[in-house]
Computed example of a mutant assay.
Amino acid sequence: MSTPAITLFDHNDALCAAWREAFADVPDVTVAHTSLTDLPAHDVLVTAGNSHAIMDGGLDLAVRDLLGQHVQDRVQWQAAASLGGTIPVGACVTVRTGHERFPWLVYAPTMRTPQTIPPSNVLLATLAVLTNPYDDAQHTIAIPGLGAGAGGLAPDVVARTMRTAWDLTRGAR
Score class of each variant (00 low, 15 high):
140 T>V: 07
105 L>G: 03
114 P>L: 08
75 V>C: 02
55 M>A: 13
83 L>S: 03
79 A>Y: 07
146 L>Q: 03
117 I>K: 08
71 V>E: 00
50 N>A: 11
38 D>Y: 14
103 P>Q: 03
133 P>K: 10
113 T>Q: 14
64 R>P: 04
122 V>M: 08
88 P>D: 11
113 T>C: 04
49 G>F: 15
107 Y>P: 02
136 D>T: 01
121 N>L: 04
50 N>S: 11
76 Q>S: 09
91 A>M: 12
82 S>Q: 12
76 Q>K: 13
36 L>V: 05
118 P>Q: 13
64 R>N: 11
140 T>W: 09
52 H>Q: 08
93 V>T: 01
123 L>P: 00
47 T>R: 04
52 H>M: 07
104 W>F: 13
56 D>M: 09
38 D>E: 15
59 L>W: 02
72 Q>V: 08
135 D>T: 13
110 T>W: 09
112 R>W: 13
137 A>E: 11
124 L>P: 02
152 G>K: 03
78 Q>D: 11
53 A>K: 05
114 P>G: 05
88 P>M: 09
81 A>Q: 15
64 R>K: 15
148 A>V: 04
58 G>A: 10
59 L>E: 01
125 A>R: 05
38 D>V: 03
143 I>Q: 03
89 V>Y: 04
46 V>P: 00
60 D>T: 02
75 V>S: 00
72 Q>W: 10
79 A>F: 10
110 T>F: 09
79 A>W: 07
149 G>D: 02
126 T>H: 02
105 L>T: 00
121 N>M: 05
100 E>R: 15
122 V>T: 12
121 N>S: 15
80 A>W: 15
150 A>Y: 02
106 V>S: 03
88 P>A: 07
37 T>K: 15
150 A>H: 03
111 M>Y: 12
94 T>Y: 06
150 A>C: 07
133 P>I: 07
130 L>M: 09
68 G>H: 05
79 A>Q: 04
143 I>M: 11
56 D>T: 10
149 G>C: 05
